[in-house]
Design a protein around this nucleic acid. Structure first.
Lengths: 189, 189
DNA sequence: GCCATAAAGCTAAGGCTAATAGCCTTAGCC
DNA sequence: GGCTAAGGCTATTAGCCTTAGCTTTATGGC
């Protein structure tokens, strides 16, 4: 039995390509093991908690990827342009990797790792909101609003919930305009 | 073997209470069958497509329930108050039945039944938007925006994505204000 | 250079699931 | 009274996760 030299990161890599190709429901330890060239139980040597732990690791990885994309999009921009760029980057990621994005809610309850990755993502949004004069608690409320809009649109779009003929790019443009407009008139308490 | 007299609707009923109590992952034909007092394969007599079909029926039912709640909330109100009421009703439903709401994305690709239920839901939103001078394609874009915001917030909240201490009711208030403000300044093309 | 030990692989087995096939009984209609 | 169809059942297959326990490999200390 030649040693494959597997790492948890590589297991997640295999899992992600599997998800990209066949969707989150195709994520089975058997399939991941086959891809890694290893028997199914051997995976437990690297991913102790089995399938649940693997899903957790996937969620962390995807959240990190997404946060990085948002950060890239925000750099060098400000104000409405920055918000627009972040939202477009969010949507671009979800569109490029729909299955991967859909795998996100399959994670177990959030833990420290996931919260940390999510914090990075929120950090990007909060930074962009600073130019609207939003900070402290109000920035958190605003960031939650931004996240809700971004996630909701991506999620519904991937699920095929937008069935009518209207152009989705136009919807996204309007949605961004609505958001920036709302941010400008943010109800300062 | 006394005949139980099961109907597809009753099967969905059992499935929904099961989901409410133990979450969408606990939805197995075995568990539903036990609850219905019947052997697992017997369910196929009522729900031909097995688990996939059952999930489809659940999605339709939940979407119908949600649409009805939104319609109830909208009646007798207009303008910003109507939008606010619809969003609050949406969130209230998701909060009351988090597992049920979470079961929604488990549905297979949308079909006619589900589209029809979704159309009712969208119809309520479009009706409310009419008072903002929005109709035709622009109303569709706006309705998609409203849906994205409502779904995104509910979905992230249920998933436990909002970890910080800030009050979620305040977030929801701000979110609604942002939306109505954005709808007033909707970019007429 | 050798040996002990821990890591990383394996097989086997248990228990769960969906789904299909085929049989039996009941209910209702002609 | 008898036929048909619907609604039950058991048995079976195939696939999955997970644990237990064994074997091999690689590595670090002497």
């Amino acid at each position: 039995m030649p040693r494959v030299g597997l790492t948890p990161e590589q297991v997640v890599d295999h899992a992600l390509t599997l998800i990209d190709e066949q969707g989150p429901d195709a994520l089975t330890l058997a399939a991941v093991a086959a891809r890694a060239g290893v028997a199914t139980p051997s995976l437990y040597k690297h991913v102790r908690g089995g399938l649940t732990e693997l899903r957790r690791l996937i969620a962390v990885r995807v959240t990190e990827e997404l946060a990085a994309r948002l950060a890239d999009a925000a750099v060098g921009r400000s104000g409405d342009a920055a918000v627009a760029a972040v939202l477009r980057a969010y949507h671009a990621y979800a569109t490029e990797h729909p299955h991967r994005y859909n795998a996100l809610p399959q994670a177990p309850q959030p833990d420290d790792d996931l919260n940390q990755a999510a914090a990075r993502l929120v950090g990007v949004i909060v930074a962009v909101l600073r130019e609207y004069g939003l900070d402290g608690s109000e920035a958190i409320h605003a960031a939650r609003t931004v996240r809700s809009l971004a996630h909701g649109f991506a999620s519904l779009r991937i699920a095929g919930a937008f069935q009518l003929a209207e152009d989705l790019t136009t919807t996204h443009d309007r949605l961004i305009a609505t958001l920036t407009s709302g941010l400008h008139t943010w109800p300062k308490p």
